[in-house]
Amino acid sequence: MIKLKLERTPAPMWSKALIPIVAVVVTFIITSLLIILADANPFTAYYNFIVVPLSSKFSALEVLVKATPLIFTGLAVTFAFASGYYNIGAEGQLYAGAVAAAWVGATFTNLPAIAAVPLELVLGFIAGMLWALIPALLKIKLKVDEVVTTLLMNSIIMYFISALLNGPWRDPETGWPKSPEFFEAARFAQLIPKSRLHIGFIIAMVLVLIVYVVLKKTPLGLQMRAVGASKVGAQFAGINVNRTMLIAALVSGGIAGLAGVSEIAGIHYHLISELSGSYGYTGIIVATLGGLNPIGSTIAALFIGLIDTGSQTVSRVLGVPVYLGDVVQSTLLLVTLGMLLLQNYRIKRQ
């Protein structure tokens, strides 16, 4: 009998690029079991998932609409994770940004768009940073695990928003828990008539470039990646680890805040407690699939946007529950995580 054993060897470069593709295939094979359970043909289902949304202009634009918040949150998570700071709080920081934008959108009704939109973005960024500040300080001053604190901050802001929407911001006419509607000039301009695509997408794209340059081409980016690779090593190399992590945490919070600004000023025009469809958490999927690389995470965001749009098509055409999209996304995350580690192993004859 041939004896086999697993042996640890460093992964070759090509396997890094191959992983997301193989992960997608493996995920589709696993989730096709659920499609069969729902009495549908997996091939027809995946055709509707992947191809149909891209075959009409309207739904192709909708993919970009759905990807926009994920590009932001994916970048936010990438920025933090790349420097070894596990910010799980993008969801809460997103809402903080949205609250700031909602305040601008309901208050400064005389501002022209050229002033209102930048004000929303700046205040949204700051609000996201502030919501990220407490966990970041606790981490660097007291070594308190940031995962638990950022996670708890997500729950806290939801109650804060509930208090706002059931209190001072309750709609005075309808009594619904939603904030006053944005005035016209505070809304993001539409990019293409009769589609929901707005300038938030362009802002996201610019941000991708900025984050890429910062991470890959600046001393700060080098320090961040060094800290991410090994805190002890970075310390020895003379890098101020605490300062680097603080910057990463706060900028990450700010970018997540921009996701909230983009969703509220581009799509909803008022604050509601269902503003985010878990975009903060999905950002973790996006960043992981993208290999903590800004470009990779953008591609991943577009792919998840496609799955989001496709799951609605699949549900409409084949009657498969729309939540199949969520199952595919989370399975993809777990499969990718597993494969990222498995690539370091080879099966050898003993």
Partner: peptide, 16 residues
């Protein structure tokens, strides 16, 4: 990340 992934997966599976 794996824990959050489990939460996302089990939630999605339940809804489905």
């Amino acid at each position: 990340v794996s824990g959050l992934g489990i939460t996302l997966l089990m939630t999605a599976l339940s809804l489905f």
